[in-house]
Each structure stands twice: as C-alpha cells, then as structure tokens.
Design a protein around this nucleic acid. Structure first.
Length: 473
RNA sequence: GGCGCUAUCGUCUAAUGGUUAGGACGGAGCCCUCUCAAGGCUUUAAUACGGGUUCGACUCCCGUUAGCGCUACCA
C-alpha cells in the first residue's frame, strides 16, 4: 500500500517550494494508485498562525489537486508521548536537565560541534528518575550510539545510498522541557502511525533523515522509503524567503497574477524534474503518467526572477501555451470568474463569449489580460492608447470610419466577409489605403493598435457596439 | 569549524564512456502579414578548475573551488 504525505507547518504562507513538494507527492500517489495525505505539522505552537493555515489551504485549493486524508499533529499528542516513552523505556533516550538557554556555552566548545552533554547522558537511572519526580524540567534526548565505526544508512530514491557516522550526529531532542514533541519525534511517530510508505520532501531534510532512521529503528517501526527533492532557490543561489524575496515565493501571487493552476503546476514540475523526452507543456494526466524519481534532479533549481521582472519568463510562456491551447470550454469558467471579479457584465451570450475568448486568447499570457487588454470586448468604456490614437489621426481615417459606421448600420448583412467587402469598397471610393481603415477600425473598436484581425474584431465587438464606436471617432 | 549534498548555455534541462553536447525560455534576425501575436526558418550561448582511469570522459575516481543544507527545547 503506497501512502505519501505532504506535511507543511503553518508558520508562513504556502511557499512555491512546498507547493512543488506537494505536487510531486501527489503525482507519485496518483501515478501508483497510492493515498495522498495532508498533515499539518503544527508542533511549534509559538510560531503557528491561523492566517498561515488559511494561506496553505488557499494555495492548495487553487492548485486543485486534492488529498485523500487529513491530519493535524496537534490532535495527536498522546501518540507522540507514547512513542517517546517507548524509546525512553528501551534506554535509547535520556533526560537532559540542563536549563533552557544554558547549552549555548557548552555547545560552542572550540573545534567540533556540540554532540551531547556527557554529565546528562550518563546520569544514573535512579538519579534521573529522582530529579524528574522532584519536578525538575528536562529535555528528552535521543541516545545516539557512540560506537566508533557505527554508520547510519538509508537509500534515497533520488540521491542514492546515504551514510553518516553515528558519531557525527548530536543527541537531538525528542521532547521539549514542556513535554511537547519536537519536529523529529512528531514527524516520525506520525509517519509510522499513518503507515507512510514514501517520505518525499525537500532536500533540506536529507541530513535530518539520519536522525529519523535512528528514531524509526528505536521505535521498532517499519522504515519508509525516502526521496528528497532538490531545493528551489533565488537567482543568487540563496534559499527563497519572504523577507528577502517578497511575494515571488508565495503560491497565491501566481494565482493573483492570472495563472492557470494546471500551467503553474506544469511549471513547478519542470523545476527539478524532467520527463527526459523534451516535452515541456504537459497536461495533468501527462504529468502523472511521466512522473518517476529517476526524472528528479539532484541539484537545486533557480526560479528566474528579478525586481523588474518578478515572474519567471518560462512560467509565463508555459501559462500562455496552456491558455491558448486548452479546450475553450475548460478555459471559460476561469475567464468568467476573472470578469466577475473585475465587475464586468458579459454583454452577449455563451456562444459569443466562447468565440470571443477563443479569438483573443491567442495573444494573451494570463487571465488578467482578459480584463486589462481585453477590456474593450467586455466593458462599455475603455481607454484609447497613444498608438491607437495615431492610427485614428491618419489623414482620412476618422471620416472614413464614420462613413463605414453609417454603411454597416444600414446593411442587412454583418459578418466577416460582408464587413471586409464594405470596408474595401469604401476605401476605394474615398481613395485611401484599406490599411488606414483597417488599422483605424481596430483602434476605434478596441482602443488598441494591436490585436486580432480587424474583421474578426467587428464580429467580436458586435454590430451595435461597432457602429456606435465607429460613429464616435 | 564539523558533517552531508550538489556543479552542462543567462535560466529550466537532455545526453547513465563513443552526439557536430540536443530541446525549451529569454535575446537577435528573416519569412508570413491589415497591426500585434501565433507559426515557420536561422542565430546567440554551456560541460567550474586541476589531476587521474580509459583507445575514448559531460558521464567513473581523487583533489581544489564555489553553492546549498544540517549542526535549536524551528520545521
């Protein structure tokens, strides 16, 4: 039974690196018929916030991938205490009565790192119990084996065989002095209890895994398989952080910028993973079918952004590809939501919306473009851009366009062919180049000098509005 | 400092001992054209450095350098 989990801690918004970890877990589960578990790792009560929890849900919901089971570590304290107790009973953990904050001096001994506090590690069972019974506060530490040549090993599905001398691992904490579990203990206890078969997480946990292996063994739990993922970093190679890099690290930024979730998921997948067959634009199903750990890289991936250009160009390009090629029917709900948010009322029916969206999406990059660059199609008022004004100011343009408006109003027919015939005939009569009227019409109808073919535009704007806009130039 | 991990165009990546080191984004140019896109074509640019092993190294080994991670009663 394949079971994977995504275990964020609610101490900030949903980070794009976390989102990618979620996606890879999800892909692996879906690919192999496994179970996807969302577990909130909220053992750090001090730093947890409701806002952060909400932001995680916002982000995950937008990604629209879903999960099968949900847990919160704060609902399971008895499990954590029980696992810690079992390890202690076996003599594999000990009480450290060193007062909080005082370790500092002992840790910074010259040379090597702090590994353990001999006095505490070697306290007799009697004295340890006596001091605990007397109410003295203590941290429960794992008694890491100190045998000289003892190696801790595991096989990582991405990074391969890993080993580290136990002597290099410090006696890490299992329980804090207030009795609450640390991340290491809670995470392993829950992974074991939830029968997680594959732990897929960021590479920042690769060295922690040696500690986790020790915990799983001490608890007598079945060892899960591990797969660590390369990190997402900023262009300067440093870890992405809100303080340093701002909103580019938050998933909701991309949602608000008008990304399609499937396109953003696609983009994130391409950071640190490759289907190895040169494919880039992939649907959700294609990603599921192609996802394997062999395709995961080992080096960190840079998210390419700058102050001037906060959105990765490739992400934008990928979004445009999805936007332009997905079935229009699937795109419509997104566009409708975007228009509603902007307060636009759709002027005609569903068929019109469908064909108009299909017409204009060919040059759009995000959903935002529908309400900004696409304003003239959906709203009554729209600005005339400077370039468009230039087209209108061409000699003969305004007069010609007004006349065209009158003729179209009078004509029975109104389709691409009839409009084109009418326009070309008029241009000839007036002795102006057709381009003057064509480009002028685009300017009059949309306020823009660039856009779809002018004759398609007439239809998208509609006869009524087209006539009105032409007569108003 | 100690330990662990990593190193191919500016960026994302392909090539698991034999390729003119491939693709994509971005940049430049051409074609197409009622504008802008799209599309088509062309172009720009990389194996961090130094040693091995081998007939042959991006690929294996060692060292150097650089980056990242862990080294908390954070996760």
């Amino acid at each position: 039974m394949l079971r994977v989990r995504f275990a964020p801690s609610p101490t900030g918004f949903l980070h794009i690196g976390s989102a990618r970890t979620f996606i890879f877990n999800w892909l692996y589960a879906r690919r192999n018929g496994g179970t996807m578990i969302l577990r909130i790792d909220d053992t750090d009560i001090e730093r947890n916030t409701e806002a952060s929890l909400q932001s995680i849900f916002d982000g995950l919901n937008w990604l629209n991938l879903g999960w099968d089971e949900f847990y919160r570590q704060s609902d399971r304290p008895q499990l954590h205490a029980q696992v810690a107790g079992a390890i202690f009973q076996k003599g594999l953990a000990y009480r450290d009565f060193t007062p909080a904050g005082r370790e500092e001096g002992e840790k910074s001994r010259a040379g090597g790192p702090w590994l353990f506090n001999a006095g505490m590690r070697e306290l007799t069972a009697e004295e340890s119990s006596r001091r605990a019974a007397a109410g003295e506060k203590f941290v429960l530490r794992f008694r890491v084996p100190r045998d000289q040549d003892r190696q801790v090993r595991f096989t990582d599905l991405v990074y391969g065989e890993q080993s580290k001398a136990a002597a290099d691992i410090e006696d890490f904490a299992l329980l804090r002095s207030d009795g609450t579990p640390t991340y290491h203990l809670a995470s392993c206890a829950d992974d074991a209890d939830l029968k997680i078969s594959h732990i897929i997480r960021g590479q920042d946990h690769l060295s922690n895994t040696f500690k986790h292996v020790l915990i799983f063994q001490a608890a007598g739990a079945e060892m899960p398989l591990f797969a660590h993922l390369p990190l997402l970093v900023a262009p300067d190679g440093t870890k992405l952080s809100k303080r340093k890099h701002g909103p580019v690290v938050s998933v909701t930024t991309y949602r608000d910028a008008g990304f399609l979730p499937q396109a953003y998921v696609n983009f994130l997948c391409l950071l640190g993973w490759s289907p190895k067959d040169n494919r880039e634009q992939m649907t959700r199903q294609e990603l599921i079918d192609a996802f394997t750990f062999e395709g995961v890289n080992r080096s960190n991936a840079v998210v390419n952004f700058s102050e001037q250009d906060p959105i990765d160009q490739k992400a934008l390009w990928l979004n445009s590809q999805h936007l332009r090629t997905m079935p229009v029917a699937d795109l419509l709900p997104y566009v409708e939501a975007e228009l509603a948010r902007a307060g636009f009322t759709i002027p005609y029916g569903k068929d019109w919306l469908s064909s108009t969206v299909d017409l204009i999406r060919a040059r759009y990059f995000t959903l935002r473009d529908f309400v900004t660059r696409g304003r003239a199609y959906f709203a009554a008022d729209f600005p005339i851009e400077p370039d468009a004004l230039e087209k209108l100011n061409k000699p003969g343009a305004r007069e010609g366009l007004r006349e065209l408006g009158r003729r179209l109003a009078a004509s029975q027919e109104f389709n691409e062919q009839s409009v084109e015939a009418e326009l070309r005939k008029l241009a000839e009569e007036l002795g102006v180049k057709a381009g003057i009227l064509i480009n002028g019409a685009r300017a009059a109808l949309t306020g823009q000098s660039v856009g779809p073919s002018a004759f398609h535009l007439f239809i998208a704007v509609g006869k009524e509005r087209a006539v009105a806009r032409l007569s108003g130039v």
